[in-house]
């Protein structure tokens, strides 16, 4: 009798677990426009565990806010020969940067190519502040990028690949579908053909960029999308391009167009 009871309890628990797993499977998706590569657009947030989502949603628990706060401090700190800070020209970031995070990478007429937010910040430092550009993946550049993009949190990604940027998006698309490395895989092998499936213990997402810079548990800190690209390329045993390279900016641009409409989540939390 006791055994049967225990079995019944175990079955009940099993059912409960199955039910909760099913509840977790329901993912918020947005409908893509006609001709889009994906049949549904889903943020990486939807592929993470309940615990990770809680961490992202609470501004105190979310460790990415360390960088948001640092960026806020840097915003009004003067630097460089012109004796200016970001705030000298752009005033209040909550207003002046309110939608900036939704449109990068963006075409820049001066350099004749699309630039990422990191590159735009450094151009501003060099040309307008007379300050030294920050190193890619350095604390200050991550902080400032995170702070600026955070101002657009909740607003839909609105990156444009029209006009002169079109050929760059095309280049990014080529890279996205180009099989490389010893494992002979392309971005699409995981993030288009297999999102929602597991690759060993990891759950594959669509590889959307709406949460970057993102706090990753694996990194124990925040990181740029280019760092993530590098990691992905190493995983498929390819030689990664350099952070800030034309290849990565083109890929970042194309990737962003795949996620148009997703809300900016910076700073997102992923594992």
């Amino acid at each position: 009798m006791k055994k049967i009871l225990m079995l019944a309890v175990a079955t009940a628990i099993g059912l409960a677990i199955a039910a909760s797993a099913k509840a977790e499977m329901k993912r918020v998706a947005i409908k893509p426009p006609n001709g889009h590569a994906l049949s549904e657009i889903i943020s990486g947030y939807e592929y993470r565990s309940k615990e990770t989502k809680v961490l992202q949603d609470d501004d105190i628990q979310n460790p990415g806010f360390i960088w948001v706060e640092q960026g806020e401090e840097l915003w009004s700190q003067t630097d460089g020969s012109a004796g200016k800070s970001c705030a000298s020209c752009h005033d209040d970031a909550t207003e002046s940067m309110a939608t900036v995070g939704t449109v990068y990478p963006k075409w820049d007429d001066k350099v004749g190519k699309p630039v990422s937010l990191e590159q735009r910040i450094n151009t501003c430092r060099k040309d307008n502040m007379g300050a030294k550009p920050w190193k890619w993946e350095s604390g200050p550049l991550l902080s400032m990028t995170t702070y600026v993009r955070h101002q657009s949190r909740g607003k839909p990604v609105n990156v444009s690949a029209e006009g002169p940027a079109a050929s760059w998006a095309e280049r990014g698309k080529k890279l996205y579908y180009q099989r490389v490395g010893q494992l002979d895989m392309a971005c699409s092998s995981c993030h288009e053909d297999n999102y929602g499936n597991r690759i060993r213990a990891d759950m594959l997402s669509q590889g959307q960029s709406n949460g970057f810079p993102t706090y990753r548990f694996k990194w124990q800190k925040i990181g740029s999308i280019h760092r993530r690209f590098k990691g992905c390329m190493k995983n498929i045993r390819a030689t990664p391009y350099k952070v800030g390279s034309d290849e990565f900016v083109a890929l970042e641009l194309y990737l962003a167009t795949r996620g148009v409409g997703l809300p900016v989540e910076t700073p997102a939390v992923r594992n």
Binding site: I60, F65, I66, E69, Q70, G139
Partner: peptide
């Protein structure tokens, strides 16, 4: 992260 900065919510 050169300097540690505490954050609290009370």
């Amino acid at each position: 992260m050169a300097k540690s900065k505490p954050r609290i919510k009370v």
